[in-house]
């Protein structure tokens, strides 16, 4: 028996309304990635994570819990769970990923910040005010709650004097760039992904090709936000030949992630189909969305290396340093990355 959709959506919407995120996590967990980076607080341009990568280990714990209780009598108690969750942060009680799990996903925003710094881009962070943007609740139709949340985020931007936002993941990008202008009167914030910012700042010739990766376009980046060339340009500059799977660019194939909160089995089926398409082309896959990263990685097991694009880019930008590393696949393809000059002189 699946959990009641109304109750699951209700819990997510209640959390967004009362706690600022569909899955509320401790502030220290959401901001841990910024430690040691000396980023100023606020300012006209900020890197906005929307806590998306930081949320992944928590989402995984919750999904596993959902799967465990779905076929038990406990599934009938979802209405009670929603009432309890209104008073107590139930997610905080049941979802406690290990420090190692959190560190792996914190590595992505940390690496993005370092890439921007190396490109000479000045930016700040909103730290604990860098809130989840509301994408899941919006997709599920909880519009009223999302509209109120969007106004809250817009007020935060106003308070910190933010005029330009650099995003990391596609879901936060589309909310801040395409949805918030419809929900918040007078919203006037420029939004670009770090991929677009880095591609625009890149100078110099691409490195010689040293390896190849299969690109998995995010549905949201490819079909809603038109982010298609920037990741390809950056990967090429990093010395990687980009291989295109059968469904690519605007015809990309979903990873299954969007349905995971309501039906993890369907999500796994879609991810497995996508992994099969990617494996037809290569042995190492690059993603640019936290949901794609985790869903494809779970479906791939040890048959395909799945890494976030930031890991490839930071590896090329500082080949002799030890970058913050996202979670490693069970069997990684060997990827040698040459030093990149893409930021020099920018």
């Amino acid at each position: 028996m699946r959990l009641s959709t109304v109750d699951v959506v209700g819990i997510l919407a209640d959390n967004l309304e009362r706690r600022g995120s569909v899955l509320p996590i401790p502030a220290r967990a959401a901001t841990g990635w910024a430690r040691g980076l000396a980023l100023p607080r606020g300012g006209p341009r900020v890197l906005y994570t929307g806590a998306m990568y930081q949320l992944i280990p928590y989402i995984e714990r919750v999904v596993r819990l959902e799967q465990r209780i779905a076929d038990t009598p406990l599934a009938r108690l979802s209405g009670l769970a929603r009432r309890v969750n209104r008073v107590v942060n139930a997610i905080g009680l049941v979802a406690r990923p290990s420090a190692a799990e959190r560190r792996d996903y914190d590595a992505v925003p940390a690496n993005v910040a370092r890439l921007l710094q190396r490109a000479g881009v000045e930016f700040g962070s909103l730290y604990e005010d860098d809130l989840y943007a509301g994408a899941l609740a919006y997709d599920l139709g909880a519009d009223e709650v999302v509209a109120a949340h969007a106004r809250r985020v817009a007020r935060i931007f106003e308070r910190y004097g933010v005029r330009e936002v650099i995003t990391i993941d596609p879901h936060t990008t589309t909310m801040l760039r395409s949805i918030y202008p419809r929900l918040v009167p007078g919203y006037d914030v420029s939004v670009r992904t770090y991929l677009e910012v880095l591609a625009a700042a890149a100078t110099g010739s691409p490195r010689a090709v040293e390896n190849e990766v299969v690109i998995h376009d995010s549905c949201v980046f490819a079909r809603a936000e038109g982010v298609l060339e920037a990741p390809r340009e950056l990967l090429a500059a990093a010395g990687l030949r980009v291989l295109e799977p059968v469904h690519s660019r605007a015809r990309t194939w979903c990873c299954g992630g969007p349905v995971e909160s309501l039906d993890a089995d369907k999500a796994a089926q879609v991810a497995a189909a996508r992994v099969a398409q990617l494996r037809e082309v290569g042995t190492a896959c690059v993603t640019m969305c936290p949901l794609c990263l985790i869903n494809l990685r779970k479906a791939a097991g040890d048959t395909l290396s799945v890494r976030d694009i930031s890991e490839y880019l930071i590896g090329a930008a500082q080949p002799d340093a030890s970058p913050e590393r996202p979670p490693q696949p069970a069997r990684s393809a060997t990827v040698r990355l040459a030093s990149s000059e893409m930021r020099e002189g920018s």
Binding site: R2, T5, D139, L140, C219, R223, A224, A250, R251, T252, W253, C254, G256, P258, V259, L262, D263, K266, V270
Partner: peptide
């Protein structure tokens, strides 16, 4: 058909 409606991925493959 509520289950199917909530299963949709909103991936826009159909829309494109």
């Amino acid at each position: 058909e509520a289950e199917a409606i909530f299963s949709c991925l909103l991936c826009r493959a159909c829309e494109s």
